[in-house]
């Protein structure tokens, strides 16, 4: 099935598998999702941290992403509080990145001679990560199918070399390719599998459960406390001396600190969904998460992976 890339894919998972195969063939390390709750694939340290420093890097992965405010109890045809992004990050951005990207659309069955593909200006900015870049949203027949960004800054640091980042909203893209109108109706595995499963079979119940929890049940006092704890822990980790007293080695704990930043960011999203953050407070919370992201970026660039000469 995977060999016949000219044939139309038939399921959600087949589209994911084809992307994995395609980007593996183009030389990307196929990573696994990060094991924490994040709002977007960009938060994976493989993107946020690896975009920093001078080391070359090429990775692709699926990242489950959570946006608590987008929950619709599984009823909305397009909106989900939990969905998948496919993320590709290559540093330095290769000169033929646009062509590589178009190749990936072909790989999942989009015929360039029949469709109208457009690169429409869209500057990307993540206030929580202190990051921005220039690029486009890519349109296929008027529908946004990907974000294409050249990172200019992350965590307040200029990116040099520059990373090229591609983000595919997998459900939306797959629904388009498969011709599905309601996400819950989309075949997850092959329709002729012994046990065919739809996206709804897999996720309808979780959407319902999380929508209720996100909007009405999550204990805001506990969340507020967790936010503050994550914030404090992040700073505490980075405040440790670089030299590990046990091994005598220099070990800067950029990644454990960054985990706390991710945690704080997700808790903020939950608090937002619970409606307990006012418009003015919102900016302050975003600023606090950004401060953590900056500290982690500052730490990461002093590590080997961050391009720091040992």
């Amino acid at each position: 099935m995977l060999d016949s890339t000219t044939a139309k894919p038939r399921s959600f998972q087949e589209i994911i598998l084809r992307l994995q195969t395609y980007w593996a063939a183009k030389g990307c390390a196929i990573l696994q999702p990060y094991d924490m709750e994040v709002g977007a694939g960009t938060f994976h340290p493989a993107t946020t941290l690896r975009a920093l420093g001078s080391n070359a890097w090429a990775a692709a992965y699926v990242q489950p992403s959570r946006r608590p405010t987008d929950g619709r109890y599984g009823e909305n045809p397009n909106r989900l509080q939990h969905y998948y992004q496919y993320q590709v990050i290559i540093k330095p951005s290769p000169p033929d990145l646009q062509d590589l990207y178009l190749g990936s659309l072909q790989a999942i069955g989009i015929d360039m001679d029949l469709h109208d593909i457009r690169f429409v200006e869209d500057d990307w900015e993540s206030p929580t990560l202190g990051a921005w870049g220039l690029g486009w949203e890519v349109w296929c027949d008027g529908m946004e199918v990907s974000q294409f960004t050249y990172f200019q800054q992350v965590g307040g640091h200029d990116c040099a070399p520059v990373s090229g980042e591609l983000t595919y909203g997998l459900e939306r893209l797959a629904m388009y390719v498969l011709g599905i109108d309601h996400v819950m109706d989309m075949p997850f595995n092959a329709p002729d599998a012994p046990i065919p499963l739809s996206y709804g079979d897999v996720f309808r119940q979780t959407e319902e459960e999380y929508s209720r929890w996100n909007f009405d049940v999550a204990d805001t006092e506990v969340l507020l406390r967790h936010f503050e704890e994550a914030e404090a822990e992040c700073a505490a980790i980075l405040a440790r001396p670089e030299e590990d007293p046990k091994t005598g080695r220099r070990i800067v704990m950029a990644h454990p600190a960054y985990d706390q930043c991710i945690k704080a960011s997700h808790i903020f999203n939950l608090l937002d969904a619970r409606g307990v953050i006012s418009v003015t407070e919102r900016q302050a919370y975003i600023g606090r998460v950004r401060a953590l992201a900056k500290m982690c970026a500052d730490a990461f660039v002093t590590t080997r992976a961050g391009g720091h000469a040992a």
Partner: peptide
């Protein structure tokens, strides 16, 4: 709508896609 390409199906696929997005 203004497409950037001439297609063998005279834009039928493109128009169908655009209509679908608009309907949503």
């Amino acid at each position: 709508t203004v497409a950037n390409i001439e297609t063998a199906d005279h834009g039928a696929t493109i128009l169908a896609g655009n209509q679908k997005v608009l309907a949503a």
